[in-house]
């Protein structure tokens, strides 16, 4: 299992690990922001690969909780970055991660906007995207497979995962709704376990 702090009763779990420098956080999220093609979940898969598996900055549980909270307001890819930065270095870390993450796309979009409003043309990159999209799906699938192996256990876990998948993929129910319902369900279960344990 990867570096995890979940469940331990340290008051400040983040003090247990080497303190990650703000520069390191900025660099990591700048890199993620610059290569995050393909929308929210592709970016999150990239972040998971880098922060959970390569750098071992944050455990998979904590990361996934951040992803869940990130569904509330605004783009969850940015929110997950903010969460990881904040987990590592508090508020300053969160802002560093958010700025690092947005900066490359901000520069690129500003440049492209300038070109666009000058020449009124969108660059012909569609065919390049046709090549990247399948690979990006592969990237998301690698993340999903790893999470499934680590976090989906038993009939209850599999049912919840499959229902959430079907609700999002086939019925277009919003991620926030799905997570709130799953949260209510597991709250009732946790409450029941506590009362009857």
């Amino acid at each position: 299992m990867l570096a995890r702090y979940g469940g331990s009763c340290y008051k400040f779990p983040m003090k247990q690990q080497v303190r990650v420098s703000l520069w390191e956080i900025f660099k990591a999220f700048f890199f993620i922001g610059a290569t995050g093609f393909g929308g929210g979940m592709a970016i999150v898969s990239l972040t998971e690969r880098y922060c959970v598996h390569e750098k071992k900055w944050i455990g998979l549980d904590e990361f996934m909780h951040g992803l869940a909270f990130g569904q509330i307001l605004g783009p969850f890819s940015l929110n997950t970055s903010t969460f990881v930065g904040c987990y590592l270095r508090g508020g300053v870390g969160g802002i560093t991660a958010a700025v690092g993450f947005i900066l490359p796309s901000f520069c690129l979009i500003s440049l492209l906007s300038w070109l666009y409003f000058r020449f009124h043309e969108v660059p012909e990159l569609q065919s390049a995207l046709r090549g990247t999209n399948p690979v990006i799906i592969g990237l998301i699938l690698v993340a999903a497979a790893g999470m499934t192996k680590a976090k989906v256990k038993g009939a209850g876990g599999w049912s919840m995962a499959l229902i959430a998948f079907a609700a999002a993929a086939f019925f277009k129910i919003s991620a926030l709704t799905i997570l709130v319902l799953a949260g209510l369900w597991s709250l009732i279960k946790a409450y029941y376990l506590r009362e009857h344990a």
């Binding site: 979940g6 996934m64 799906i137 998301i140 989906v152 959430a164 609700a167 709250l187 946790a190 506590r194």
Partner: peptide, 23 residues
Amino acid sequence: KNTLDGILPAIVGLVAAAAYSLG
């Protein structure tokens, strides 16, 4: 903690659904 850990499979489902939609 139990509630948050309980929703982890749902998050996995959402990640897989994103791959499906993009696909």
